[in-house]
Nucleic acid binder design. Structure first.
Lengths: 202, 202
DNA sequence: TATAAAAATGAACTTTGTTCAAAAAAGTTT
DNA sequence: AAACTTTTTTGAACAAAGTTCATTTTTATA
């Protein structure tokens, strides 16, 4: 019995998340139905609620998995022998590629909204920082003028800006960057944000 | 009878959207309930469906209004006597301020997801381009190396990147940029993206 | 084998969106 | 003004989903 759940329950939880993940990947989080999950997982409707708070909790579990896979993808994208510029571009390209290849799952992370009053559990919040941390070292090298809080702040800004470009591109009801141009535009963005400073006038 | 709706229906539609808008501003789109709208608007439940497809349609109407107000806010933010750099920063600051001051309404735009198969009506899609268009002139001035499609593409990239930074900051389950630092970080981003090129090496 | 604890079940309840036949109101014709 | 037609409004009824919980079944323990 680990994590407050017996082995039996752990297995059930895993099965439920597996099924939910497949459904989100296929049809988006909006297509998730408790009854469908129960049927596909081969359990009774009520069983789901013995391992999960509610449907939002199911989506949050799926989202945590996606974030962890994204983290792995980013780590795998970093070239062993590249310089800081290479690393930056590889991370950005990795992000773009992951998003495009996991569209529904990736979108589910950013479109989930909880009812007023509810907030995300700590185990889920913990899945975000690793995404940022990989940026800090190469950014520090390229922007030696930044350190400490300013550096970590800028890393988040850079991450968020790349995220925004991908996000808008995928948005579907917008004059976003077409996906053919995504990599190039993101590269330009990374380029601009990592180029060493020559004392801006304002 | 304009727009396919009689005056009577137009008024009902307006009343419905008014009520919905207030509710989204107050509690987010997740708090929208058809029965609440009917009660507050003083009409029967079924009446709503005589002027609107479904609840998504209601949210889309609210979102269109928000986009139009955002457009106005951006136009109003541009200084009459500023140079291109001033205009760029004013637009970015305008976007940040609008988002922070209209958090729930602004969030509703970007978290709405339609069921598979449905797509947004043209009248809603038309509300996005005006947001981008204001960027093109000043960007063209600052980046004379860009023109035509490349220029409009870069404008969208710039818009989207700023959006991403604000979006993450507001995300709530993330190491985003804290709102005190938002304006400064967005300025740095705009700065980087508008600084004239000095022939990047890669 | 008997007893206790844990797990699984699915019917029932709740909330919400959506439809539609009927009633009411407004408009038109004679 | 009365009769008729069209438009609008209504709310009961239905449907789809999430959630609960008393009961049953399974598993573990004595």
């Amino acid at each position: 019995m680990i994590d407050g759940l017996s082995k039996k329950k752990q297995e059930l939880l895993t099965r439920v998340i597996d099924v939910a993940e497949a459904e989100v990947a296929e049809s988006g989080a909006i297509g998730l139905k408790a009854r469908d999950i129960a049927k596909t997982a081969g359990v009774a409707l009520g069983s789901i609620y013995t391992v999960v708070e509610d449907m939002d909790d199911v989506v949050t579990h799926v989202n945590s998995r996606t974030l962890q896979r994204l983290g792995s993808a980013l780590r795998a994208a970093v070239p062993a022998d590249g310089d800081a510029v290479d690393v930056m571009h590889a991370l950005a390209a990795g992000y773009v590629t992951f998003a495009l290849e996991n569209l529904n799952l990736w979108t589910a992370i950013f479109t989930q909204t909880l009812p007023a009053g509810k907030s995300y559990p700590d185990w889920h919040k913990a899945d975000y920082p690793p995404l940022i941390e990989q940026i800090i070292a190469p950014l520090s090298e390229l922007r030696p003028d930044l350190e400490g809080d300013a550096l970590s702040l800028r890393a988040r800004t850079l991450f968020a800006s790349v995220h925004g470009v991908v996000s808008m591109s995928v948005f579907g009801r917008f004059v976003g960057v077409p996906s053919e141009a995504l990599h190039a535009e993101v590269n330009a963005l990374v380029e601009a944000m990592t180029r060493g400073l020559e004392a801006p006038k304002r």
